[in-house]
């Protein structure tokens, strides 16, 4: 909490001393009135088009998905799918007991978390390194963005080629005396996936960290310099608090994106996937589009949704990203 007073407190104090004349009470009154007024007369009807779209694009498919999870829907009943036999919770029971679903969820969540844990410091470091102007900064910044700009498919294809047995990476490691074995199958494949994911997604964290850094007022830098803060203290107590909001957002979006990432593992490892990288999207895909068990895969998607939603909700409350009063989290 001391960080808050250091960053947010200083400009406030200065401001309030300047605008001392109207008195704190009257200022409070006007702001409350304005707020009350705007809450009552908000033109909520303007949300209708967006709301309708959200119903069509999100709510309806969600409900359909839940409905499907109760059906015995496969290629034999697909054509008249609404009349497919209703089997209650059998799909859920099968998903939990007789399929690799839990293993897949574990793999997906753990890999996403590991990739995020590495990309966040990388992103911050990249952003801090390119914060101050220097010759060629624009070029470096553009280079940093390359992995983010490349389509996932291209990234995965290039890495797959490099990780082939006897290809670039193998011969490189071989030249320094390491024989690491297979990269695209077996236990290493999990780490291959994390590595490629880090490579592909760190610029996203970098971008958000950069935007956070841009919002640090110049005065704050000056003030902390006047207070005699050196680089680490400045970074730790002045700059990082500004990054909390953007980085919480990056963490959230990054996790969701990784958990749902289909292209990368699909192109890297193919189908059927090695059991070490049988991730959630791959499993759902194979179940619906190779085995045609649409009902079962809908149940899998629903279970994983719930399992992921719980920690997500806790996280949202913890970082207050969802708090409308402080947009973008706290500075």
């Amino acid at each position: 909490m001391s960080t808050d007073s250091l960053t947010a407190g200083k400009p406030m104090r200065r401001k309030s001393s300047r605008d001392a004349k109207p008195g704190p009470q009257s200022q409070d009154n006007t702001s409350r009135r304005r707020k009350g007024l705007s809450e009552r007369n908000r033109p909520l009807w303007m949300l209708i088009p967006g709301g309708l779209l959200m119903i069509i694009i999100i709510v309806v498919p969600l409900l359909l998905g839940i409905f499907m999870s109760g059906l015995d829907l496969d290629q034999y009943s697909l054509r008249k799918w609404v009349s497919a036999p209703f089997i209650g919770v059998q799909n859920f029971v099968e998903a939990l007991t007789a399929s690799p679903l839990l293993h897949a969820i574990w793999l997906s969540v753990s890999y996403s978390l590991l990739a995020m844990v590495v990309t966040i410091p990388l992103g911050i470091a990249g952003a801090v390194a390119t914060q101050n102007a220097f010759k060629g900064r624009a070029v470096i910044r553009s280079i940093f963005l390359i992995p983010y700009v490349l389509p996932s498919f291209v990234v995965a294809t290039v890495w797959r080629t490099m990780f082939q047995p006897g290809s670039v990476i193998d011969s490189l490691l071989h030249s320094v005396g390491i024989d690491a074995g297979l990269w695209l199958n077996g236990p290493n494949s999990y780490w291959t996936l994390i590595l490629v994911q880090i490579w592909a997604s760190w610029p996203f964290v970098y971008l958000l960290a950069l935007s956070g850094l841009q919002s640090v007022d110049h005065e704050v830098h000056e003030a902390s310099a006047l207070d005699g803060a050196l680089w680490w203290n400045k970074l730790r107590y002045v700059v990082f608090p500004y990054l909390k909001g953007p980085l919480s957002l990056a963490f959230l979006i990054g996790m969701l994106h990784h958990i749902n990432n289909f292209t990368l593992p699909f192109v890297l490892f193919g189908i059927p996937a090695p059991s070490d990288v049988e991730l959630l999207p791959i499993l759902t895909y194979v179940t619906s589009f190779q085995s045609f068990r649409f009902g079962l895969s809908a149940a899998m998607a629903f279970i994983s949704l719930i399992l992921i939603a719980i920690p997500l909700f806790v996280y949202l409350r913890a970082v207050k990203l969802d708090d409308a009063e402080t947009p973008g989290g706290k500075k």
Partner: peptide, 17 residues
């Protein structure tokens, strides 16, 4: 949260296909 959650389901359900 509901929006995030539904978006997550929509994405999971699609499985990228």
């Amino acid at each position: 949260a509901a929006v995030v959650v539904t978006a997550a389901l929509a994405l999971t359900a699609c499985g990228g296909g």
